[in-house]
């Protein structure tokens, strides 16, 4: 069953992306290549529906529709993980930005605080 190998490999790749995914120039290229490939394959599949079924049979799937559903599931997983990683990275930046705003707002209090730390005080003998 070639399809089992393909789908498991797809799921493993999704898990790997979740853990190690980084936005590099290479990953951008891969994403773009996949997008182009998906468009081209989609076009071919629309023009020659029988071809999908034949490919499905070749990899061990009963119907072409089933093959499309399986691929859709894997593609959805990758999309979700990609968006999750992207949102997480954006959230990190947002927190840092908000932190800088907060620290900026408190900057005026720093000299007084610094003076308060170094101010000599009576020895506490309690």
């Amino acid at each position: 069953m070639i399809i089992k190998v393909l789908l498991l490999a797809g799921l493993a790749a999704a898990a790997y992306t979740l853990m190690h995914g980084r936005r590099t120039a290479l990953s951008l290229l891969v994403r773009r290549a996949i997008a182009l490939l998906a468009l081209a394959t989609g076009g071919v599949a629309v023009l020659f529906p029988d071809l999908v079924t034949r490919v499905a049979h070749a990899v061990g799937v009963g119907r072409g529709t089933d093959l499309v559903v399986y691929l859709l599931c894997v593609a959805f997983l990758f999309t979700t993980i990609g968006l999750h990683l992207r949102l997480a990275a954006m959230h990190d930046k947002y927190v840092e930005l908000a932190r800088q705003v907060a620290l900026g707002a408190a900057r005026a209090d720093a000299p007084a605080a610094q003076a308060e730390i170094v101010r000599p005080r009576a020895v506490d003998i309690s």
Partner: peptide, 22 residues
Amino acid sequence: AVVVPHPTNLGQGAALETGIRF
């Protein structure tokens, strides 16, 4: 107290980090 005001709610870990930096 000296107040460092986060403009929105960022979470306790974020608040701690901000306070430590200040």
